[in-house]
């Protein structure tokens, strides 16, 4: 199980990656022949996601995004891939299923694939 708020934060991070990439490299995608004209549709999808998140989570997400460039990082081998600090194994337990899990070292939001 995964906290619904955590799921929304992962979806938001994926969406922000797409928005950034298709803004930064728009010409490259167009040159390849892709239609990337509806950026406003993604902005709408983003606004919808944000509206479903608790304000404190949005605030933390934006702050991490600003500080690190990306707010959500996956956990591999019980390690935060953002700062490579160890992640407590208890994070995988049922005790934490209803919480948004964050790296204790860097504060990034964690995704457990």
């Amino acid at each position: 199980m995964m906290n619904p708020q955590e799921q929304l934060l992962v979806a938001l991070q994926d969406l922000d990656l797409m928005l950034k990439e298709h803004t930064d490299s728009k010409d490259q995608f167009k040159k390849m022949g892709f239609d990337v004209s509806n950026l406003e549709e993604l902005q709408k999808a983003r606004a919808l996601l944000v509206s479903k998140l608790e304000p404190a989570h949005v605030q933390h997400y934006e702050s991490m995004q600003k500080r690190h460039g990306r707010a959500v990082f996956p956990v591999t081998s019980d390690m935060c891939l953002g700062c490579f600090a160890a992640v407590p194994s208890v994070y995988r337990s049922a005790l934490y299923q209803d919480r948004v899990r964050m790296c204790q070292h860097c504060g990034r939001i964690l995704y457990f694939p």
């Binding site: 979806a11 969406l15 239609d35 990337v36 509806n38 993604l42």
Partner: peptide, 12 residues
């Protein structure tokens, strides 16, 4: 979800 979002941007 990511692939659907990409399609909203413009069909691939």
């Amino acid at each position: 979800e990511m692939l659907h979002n990409r399609e909203h941007l413009g069909s691939t």
